[in-house]
Design a protein around this nucleic acid. Structure first.
Length: 196
DNA sequence: AATCTGGTCAACCGCACCTAG
DNA sequence: GCTAGGTGCGGTTGACCAGAT
């Protein structure tokens, strides 16, 4: 398929971060006309964005029911369980976490969990090398982070998941202060509606 | 105080799939 | 059955920020 078809118009297409004005236009338009048919929506709303860009912005950020930040330990656990089951099927996983987007889960996985898994694998590799040298027959305890993560990364479905809730500490420092809050945007949108 | 480094996340890209004509 | 246009998904990138040096 010709990839240019999505952006077939010769009009300039804006890229990069969305401005507050663009957000307001999109929110207003969807409030009045509903979502869907994103390419024509972008044109009709007067946004110099691709339909894909509008869709992404709406789904990942502007939707009123989207929850942002503070992924709870329960959610972390669920993400890990579902990832063990389905792999990188982020949208499928996101469907089981109301208000969470596939993008958010994907980012969360890559930045938080994958890092821990890599560390765990390194620790495990080092410890097994160490064990090979020692040839010691002493049994190992399995309460470390490394063991927990290794168990997970090996797609083991036994109930070691019980460790996960305590293994992954909720960091609680998600920097989600955006330039303007969603409450601000929605209250502005309501104001606009009142003026129409 | 200045610079470096690593973490985070919004947004883009490319591809596959779906559907209407 | 073929094609064009639209949509959804997963991977990747780049800007920004905070903490370390």
């Amino acid at each position: 398929m010709d990839k240019r078809t999505c952006d077939s118009q010769d009009v300039e297409v804006r890229k990069g971060p969305w401005t507050m004005e663009e957000d307001l236009i999109l929110i207003n338009y969807i409030a009045n006309h509903g979502e869907g048919v994103w390419n024509s929506l972008a044109r009709s709303a007067g946004l110099k964005r691709t339909g894909k860009s509008c869709r992404l912005r709406w789904l990942n950020y502007l939707r009123p029911d989207v929850r942002r930040g503070n992924i709870t330990p329960e959610e972390q656990l669920l993400i890990m369980e579902l990832h063990a089951k389905w792999g990188n099927r982020w949208s499928k996983i996101a469907k089981h976490l109301p208000g969470r987007t596939d993008n958010e889960i994907k980012n969360f996985w890559r930045t938080r969990i994958q890092k821990h898994i890599k560390q765990a694998e390194n620790i495990n590799r080092l410890s097994s090398e160490h064990n090979n040298i020692q040839q010691a027959s002493t049994s190992q305890t399995s309460t470390s982070l490394a063991d927990s993560m290794e168990t997970y990364s090996g797609n083991n479905n036994n109930n070691n998941n019980n460790n996960m809730g305590t293994t992954f500490h909720h960091q609680g420092n998600f920097p989600n202060e955006n330039i303007w809050s969603m409450e601000d945007l929605w209250s502005m949108q309501l104001l606009n509606d009142a003026n129409n």
